[in-house]
Simulated scan of single mutants.
Amino acid sequence: MKITVLEPLGVEKEKLEEIARPLIEKGHTLEIFEEKSTDIEELKRRVKDTNILVIANSPLKGEVIKAASDLEMISVAFTGVDHVDLDIAKENDILVSNAAGYSTPAVVELTFGLMIGILRNVVPLHKVTREGGTMEGFRQRELHGRTLGILGTGDIGGDVAKVAIAFGMKVIAFNRSENEELKNLGVEYMSMEDVFKTSDIVTIHLPLNDKTRGIVDQRYLNMLKKDAILINAARGPIIDNNALAKALNEEKISGSGIDVFDMEPPIPSDYPLLNAKNTVLTPHIAYASEEAMVRRAGIVFKNIEKFLEGNPQNVII
């Protein structure tokens, strides 16, 4: 079998080859492309004779999948797979797996980093301190005692809840199903409307799909307290980001921490959130710790091993 890594996975080539060693020793071949490409014809060339394709978060269009006539599996080095044309993959009997769980610690940590960055005004005070200024005029607020609303209590949202409790926060949540372990820890489930109305901070940990796209719209933003903060380290299009920028600039909410957008960075200069008040922005880094990249590569190649053994894991379709 030929295995093609279509784009960089955030791990050095030598380390990647080490992780893939069990497959190589069984006679499978490994081709690694160390530069991303957005050129459709170049991508078609790269995949044309591969049997197993590894991608990260770059879009994989149907026409590229169709060009890989011998393709049997796509091992996605990411949790979400909304960037893959799943209809074409299914149509061509191609199994798609993901790397669920690899980034959980990294995303949880950045989520709280964004919260603290806003509450303690870390970013503006960094600049002020370098310019010889003081904290005068800047608020300093604590996580302790605040109510955190979590949208989505899967692995990441669930761990966010546990950390929040350790910080001394009250935790409320919205999810399709209720997690009994979290309820036993004191998490209270309620409607999405009540989460927005009650929370001091709302953090999003939902998947992106047809039901969640644009779900956090102006109506929900209007439910937030004026002193509330919104965090998104999940998927950008879950929020109506134009409405969010408007709410921030009109000071209808207190601040926002955003790691994901309606597109992958670099972000166009006219994108509204770039000029929104009291907003900490990061260029989609929540998942990207060094440790998470190694975990991710391990899962990706373990998925391939399991597929070749006839016992696939982390299967999406």
Rank of each mutant, 00 (worst) to 15 (best):
K44N: 02
I52N: 05
K48D: 08
V84N: 06
D70I: 07
A106Y: 05
S97Y: 04
K48L: 08
I116F: 10
M73V: 13
G101E: 13
N57V: 10
A77T: 12
E42A: 05
S103E: 10
D49M: 08
I40R: 02
E109C: 06
E25W: 05
M115V: 07
V76I: 14
I32Q: 05
K66Q: 04
I94F: 12
A56P: 02
V54K: 01
A67F: 06
L86V: 14
A67Q: 09
S58E: 09
L110M: 03
F78V: 00
P22D: 03
V84H: 04
R46G: 06
E42P: 01
D49A: 05
S75I: 08
V108M: 08
L53F: 12
S58W: 04
L30H: 03
G113C: 02
S75V: 10
L110N: 01
D93M: 13
E42K: 03
A77Y: 03
D39N: 12
L71N: 07
T79F: 06
D82I: 15
E25A: 14
N57E: 11
T111Y: 04
D49Y: 12
P59Q: 09
I40F: 03
G62K: 07
G117S: 01
T50Q: 11
I19R: 05
T50K: 09
A20F: 05
K66D: 00
A106M: 05
K90R: 15
N92G: 10
V47P: 06
V54G: 03
T50S: 14
I52P: 04
F78E: 00
G117Y: 00
L95R: 12
F112Y: 10
T38P: 00
V76K: 04
N57G: 05
V64D: 11
D82E: 14
L30P: 04
V47Q: 08
L23A: 08
L23P: 05
L86R: 07
I74D: 12
G101A: 07
I32H: 02
K44L: 02
G117N: 00
D39I: 06
A56W: 08
S69I: 15
A106V: 12
A99G: 00
L43S: 03
E41N: 13
L71S: 11
V107I: 13
P22W: 04
F78N: 00
M115C: 11
R21S: 11
E72D: 12
A100N: 14
K26G: 08
D85L: 15
I94P: 12
D85P: 11
D93L: 10
G27F: 11
M73G: 03
K48E: 13
I40A: 00
L53E: 07
V64R: 03
A99F: 00
S58Q: 12
T79M: 09
I74T: 10
R46C: 07
E42M: 02
K90S: 15
N98H: 10
V47I: 14
E25F: 07
G27P: 07
E35Q: 03
I74Y: 08
I19C: 02
A100F: 10
S97A: 15
A67Y: 08
P105E: 11
E34G: 08
V54I: 14
S37K: 02
S103R: 01
E91S: 15
V54L: 03
A99M: 01
L43N: 06
V96R: 06
S75Y: 09
I88P: 08
I94Y: 13
I52M: 06
I24W: 10
R45L: 02
M115A: 06
I65W: 09
L110K: 03
